[in-house]
Amino acid sequence: MTPTRTDPVPLALKLLVAGGFGVGKTTLVGAVSEIRPLRTEETLTEAGRPVDDLAGVEAKRTTTVAMDFGRITLRDDLVLYLFGTPGQDRFWFLWDELAQGALGAVVLADTRRLADCFAAVDYFERRGIAFTLAVNCFDGADRYPESDVRDALDLDPGVPVVMCDARERESVKHVLVSVVEHAIATGVVGHRDTPQTLA
């Protein structure tokens, strides 16, 4: 097909937003973009249902997984997409597709339940995906110094730790800027065949 249109085809980039259950992922995506649920249908094997219930029906079912999805139009020709990763462990396989070609990630943490973000930190570390650890400062949660969070999560020294309020647009913008800066610092650009390493 011959391209006939004149309006620019945008360059599309994506960031992932991960973190434990109820940590504010949906809130964060909604604070900077028009958020919409994105549905994928996945085949899951259903275990543990009573045999009487299943009687002859294939034990595999298609289930709908909903993800947070937001678009930020940066320029006519530049779009940033945000994908909230599905929280449940059984959907880890979906992360691999989302992580493919991602510019970077936000790992949201709640200091009252820091362990909930271990899995996400581990995931991005293993794949060399630049991430910022954003501490969502819920009302009533104790404020810990950044160094405590860093130690508790055993973060690499280069990983930015940012205190944020996922409900505040300015605060979330700051978090996203931090991810992109970190991606630049870790050499995300122009290292096609070399594995990314943290500086």
Partner: peptide, 11 residues
């Protein structure tokens, strides 16, 4: 990526 940062700040 620098453009992305500038545009994010300007949002």
């Amino acid at each position: 990526l620098r453009d992305v940062i500038d545009a994010l700040r300007a949002l």
